[in-house]
């Protein structure tokens, strides 16, 4: 039963990734693209956690944590760059 739920959840998050990719490509403003990238990172974290449950190891949680940190920093850096023209003033 868990396998079915894992498949369903993976399909949902994969679909979410596709939709946000579409938003990343077509998004009218720069802020839309940053938002789409941020949401893609979050969906990818969920996919990694699901893969970790499926494989039964703990390693993927560490990787998901790292990706969460890198995603946050990159979103803030993009926004700072557009807002101020510089990342660290």
């Amino acid at each position: 039963m868990i396998l079915y739920a894992l498949t369903f959840a993976s399909a949902c998050f994969g679909l979410g990734l596709l939709v946000t990719l579409w938003r990343l490509v077509t998004g009218p403003s720069q802020a839309d693209r940053i938002l789409a990238l941020d949401t893609m990172v979050i969906n990818f974290i969920a996919l990694m956690v699901l893969y970790g449950i499926w494989q039964g190891t703990q390693i993927y949680f560490e990787a998901a944590m790292l990706i969460a940190m890198v995603g946050f920093v990159s979103t803030v850096a993009f926004c700072r760059f557009i807002l101020r023209g510089d990342i660290i003033e």
């Binding site: 039963m1 079915y4 739920a5 949902c12 679909l15 979410g16 946000t20 938002l35 969920a46 699901l50």
Partner: peptide, 26 residues
């Protein structure tokens, strides 16, 4: 219990992607 939580997470991600697609302004 585990399967229910996974399915709830998946459904909410679908809701979020529908919102990403359909809402008008940023």
């Amino acid at each position: 219990l585990v399967a229910a939580f996974l399915v709830i997470g998946g459904v909410f991600s679908l809701v979020s992607s529908i919102g990403m697609m359909r809402l008008r302004t940023l």
